Amino acid sequence: MKTLRAQLRDVIQQEMTQDPAHDVLHLDRVWANAHRIAKDEGGINLRVLVAAAYLHDLVNLPKNHPDRKLASAMSAEKAEPILAKLGYSAEDIAAAQHAITTHSYSAKLEPKSREAVILRDADRLDALGAVGIARTFMVAGQMDRPLADPRDPFAAKRALDDQLWSIDHWHLKLLQLPHEMATRKGRKIARKRAKLMLAYLQQLAKEMDTELPAHWSELLE
């Protein structure tokens, strides 16, 4: 597995367009998450899982790109010849492609295999916790999106809008991810990481001389 992982890392260094939030370190973390969940689940095809973990962002389109929801399918297609060269069977290639295609939040496709379910949980875990906080602001900087509405930073009296304000994205998506995890281990890790993010928001609110509205904390109940 160590040799295969090294080969896959070499491939993505050459084939994948990387940005600060979707780079080789992101792939390393997704694999670490996936491997951790797989140990808890048991009976997982790790060759399929490691391939899907390292190739799931081969085609990486910006979040505001009109074809964003197609990126996972494009990544799966691009993965096929790579895995064939690495000696994967047709069956394992198809399994890895399915996991890659269905991992995407924006594609809204249902994973049908255990490996696909694990990859989706593992990728979403990387949007939470300390890394999730860092990635949020890296993406916001790339998109030139402000931190928060200066009049009502935590949407106490306005509608949430994550197309305008970075912090709103936490409420509309990120802090809801623990409820969407499909594996027991994924849910446990996600909830712990989301609590860290909520603590960060509470401190941020203090530093902004305001209070975090109750509807933020209610997301984790």
Score class of each variant (00 low, 15 high):
Met1Cys: 09
Lys2Arg: 11
Arg9Pro: 03
Ile12Gly: 02
Gln13Leu: 14
Met16Tyr: 13
Pro20Asp: 14
Pro20Phe: 10
Pro20His: 11
His22Met: 11
His22Glu: 15
Val24Cys: 07
His26Tyr: 13
His26Ala: 12
Leu27Gln: 15
Asp28Lys: 10
Asp28Trp: 10
Ala32Val: 08
His35Pro: 05
Arg36Leu: 15
Arg36Ile: 04
Ile37Ser: 00
Asp40Ser: 15
Asp40Gly: 07
Glu41Ile: 15
Glu41Trp: 12
Arg47Ser: 07
Val50Ala: 04
Val50Glu: 09
Ala53Trp: 02
Leu55Ile: 08
Leu58Thr: 12
Leu58Lys: 06
Pro66His: 12
Pro66Lys: 11
Asp67Gln: 13
Ala73Lys: 13
Ala73Ile: 11
Met74Lys: 14
Lys78Cys: 07
Ala79Glu: 00
Lys85Gln: 14
Ser89Leu: 03
Ser89Glu: 07
Ala90Val: 09
Ala94Asn: 10
Ala94Trp: 07
Ala94Asp: 09
Ala96Ser: 14
Ala96Thr: 14
Ile100Cys: 01
Ser106His: 14
Lys108Arg: 13
Glu110Leu: 11
Pro111Val: 07
Pro111His: 09
Glu115Tyr: 03
Ala116Tyr: 05
Leu119Gly: 04
Ala122Val: 04
Ala122Gly: 05
Arg124Pro: 01
Arg124Asn: 11
Leu125His: 02
Leu125Ala: 03
Ala127Met: 09
Leu128Cys: 00
Gly129Ala: 03
Ala130Met: 08
Ala130Ser: 12
Val131Ser: 02
Gly132Thr: 02
Ile133Asp: 04
Ala134Cys: 10
Arg135Phe: 10
Val139Arg: 09
Asp144Trp: 06
Pro146Thr: 08
Pro153Ser: 00
Ala156Pro: 06
Ala156Ile: 06
Arg158Lys: 06
Ala159Asn: 12
Leu160Gly: 01
Asp162Cys: 04
Gln163Arg: 02
Leu164Glu: 09
Ile167Asp: 01
Trp170Leu: 06
Trp170Pro: 03
Pro178Tyr: 01
Thr183Asp: 00
Ile189Thr: 05
Ile189Val: 13
Ile189Met: 03
Ile189Leu: 10
Lys192Gly: 04
Ala194Val: 00
Ala194Gln: 00
Leu196Asn: 03
Leu196Lys: 12
Met197Gln: 14
Leu204Met: 13
Ala205Thr: 11
Glu207Leu: 09
Leu212Ala: 04
Ala214Cys: 06
Leu220Gln: 01
